[in-house]
Design a binder for these strands. Structure first.
Lengths: 149, 149
DNA sequence: TACCAATAATTAGTGTGACAAATATATAAA
DNA sequence: TTTATATATTTGTCACACTAATTATTGGTA
């Protein structure tokens, strides 16, 4: 395995991840879902974990705080999410789905699961396991490196 | 395999791709490379295929034309790339590395290959083959779908 | 009490990604 | 030759990622 190969794999990984996102986004658009792929990820996690802070949510979806702030801003503007003041900590919020947010999640969930299926055609159960293991290995290889060195 | 799983794999893929890019970008920054990861990809491909048009280059690096235009703009501003008028077609350019661009590529290439290696620790030759196959399968599952339907 | 470090969230700045639309030029067809 | 179509690039807009810096608040400690 030459060093050149590693660069190629990084390229393939990036290219494929972009394609998966782009495909999903296009389907979202065709279906008039009124949210982006990333907004959906946030909505879905909020629906499964109500009343959490932005920091907790950011950790769930693996987005940084500025990015999450802006996604939440957009979801609030669209009326799907609201920020309630945190009862004990005035720096923080409890995020919540509005009734519109709840029905949006209910309406979109089955459609989105169907869209996600497309990417994984022609792959076996075992492929999924391998893929997951490799992705997680890569992630862990790089996570926290910046602090250690 | 449930539909929920497919969504999780999409998430893992996105998360890992972002981590790989972020890690590389951080190393680029620590090393004062004066280019971003994507700018490097463009520079490298230009060094291996001189005198090509932006359309050809965009196809090589799998970026869309507006994105490539802007990356080339930045590389021109930094003095690493220049647009020569295409001799036969006034709509088009021949892109070229400047002397500074050539020495930048020469200086960075070994460092970047080393950085890329980090992501792939703890994985075997066979893992790479599997990984490449799965990524390409996914890509092909989604490529061109928008036109067919 | 006053100070100080840590934390939650935001803002600002730059780069990238996707898509639509515009501009200029080239090429083929009528 | 005129017209129509296709191609190469750019511009505009919105969204996301990351860094650094800022604001407000909290909690611990001298």
């Amino acid at each position: 395995m030459t060093q050149e190969q590693f660069a190629k794999y990084s390229f393939l990984l990036d290219r494929t991840a972009r394609k998966v996102k782009q495909y999903a986004q296009q389907q979202f658009k065709d279906g008039d879902f009124d949210v982006t792929v990333d907004q959906w990820l946030v909505l879905k996690n909020l629906s499964e974990n109500g009343k959490i802070s932005q920091t907790e949510l950011a950790n769930l979806v693996f987005k940084d705080h500025p990015t999450l702030t802006r996604i939440v801003d957009l979801l609030c503007k669209k009326g799907y999410v609201e920020r309630e003041p945190h009862p004990q900590d005035r720096r923080s919020f409890h995020l919540n789905l509005t009734p519109e947010g709840v029905s949006k999640v209910t309406a979109l969930r089955p459609k989105i699961l169907e869209i996600r299926e497309k990417a994984w055609e022609n792959l076996s159960e075992q492929d999924f396991e391998e893929f997951k293991r490799i992705l997680n290995t890569i992630y862990q290889n790089l996570d926290g490196q910046l602090l250690e060195e």
